[in-house]
Design a protein around this nucleic acid. Structure first.
Lengths: 156, 156
DNA sequence: GTCCCTGCAAATGGTTTGCAGGCGG
DNA sequence: CCGCCTGCAAACCATTTGCAGGGAC
């Protein structure tokens, strides 16, 4: 069952607590500010990739500015604390990374209701290596997302 | 992604000639206009996905308006005459589809110079099917692109 | 006391759209 | 001639950035 997709909304993934997260900031010589704490808290509550606008909307009005969320996500991405995903709708989505998790996984997205299921197993290492050597490339990575229609939408 | 320095196109892929293409338009009860012919001609010259802006720049000034190119690409996409690709830089890129080609292939993109190599073999059908049944989804498709550093950029 | 961080507002860049006139069928 | 297409300009939307004041350390 290891490769089975994760159940949405159950938050089974381990999420570091806030002090743990802010410590990472401090280690990176970054300041721990109110907006950043609010953003990290908001991120912890998510179990799926969220867009910046969505994240912003979960914040108490006045917690911080939209531009600050953008800046914070850049910062966190640079510190490998979040991972950016792209579902092809021209909107960046982010997930908080757990310790030691490189965040490499994919998603199955319902094209009608946007339900997201996490796909944990990725068997592309060998293909990646093959592609690298065949084309003389190095540092080859990939982006992969699945799209389809979920059972609920199909029933409609 | 860097700016593009497109290499001379090899054009190995079969590209239908213009009359053949405009016939498809006619079959779809679409009008054959000057701008559309110019756009199709410009598309035929490409052997890799091009952004709308790039395509527009290859047109003789005055051939048509940028907005018209956008509208034409929507039209052509809806008629399955072009396929849209997404390299994660928030810019849509398009490729002309050959007859009978569903356009399912992937690309290897250099993150420094934006060189693009087409990856033709895709062995994900079974994984796709697996993911569909495991999660109760239907009509499952995927988007997959590879990124890396090409030999030229590596040498710099 | 530094200078990093923030809010605000304006700019950016890709893409879309409203409108009135024009041309393909 | 009818209605699809087009050019033009303005609107849109996610994201970025300049600036000056304020707070973390």
């Amino acid at each position: 069952m290891g490769s089975l997709a994760r159940k949405p909304d159950s938050l089974e993934r381990y999420q570091a607590d806030l002090p743990h997260l802010t410590q990472k900031l401090r280690r990176g010589s970054r300041k721990i500010t109110g907006p950043r704490q609010a953003i990290l808290e908001a991120l912890r509550r998510q179990s799926h990739p969220v867009s910046i606008k969505e994240l912003f909307d979960t914040l108490t009005q006045g917690d911080c500015d939209l531009a600050t969320v953008y800046r914070a996500m850049h910062l966190l991405e640079g510190m490998s604390m979040v991972k950016r995903f792209d579902f092809g709708d021209r909107v960046a989505r982010f997930e908080l990374l757990s310790d030691g998790d490189d965040g490499h996984h994919h998603h199955l997205v319902c094209t009608q209701c946007a339900e997201v299921v996490e796909i944990s197993d990725c068997s592309m290492q060998e293909q990646e290596a093959q592609i690298a050597t065949r084309n003389g490339f190095t540092h080859v990575t990939h982006k992969l997302e699945f799209f389809g229609i979920c059972s609920a939408c199909r029933a409609l």
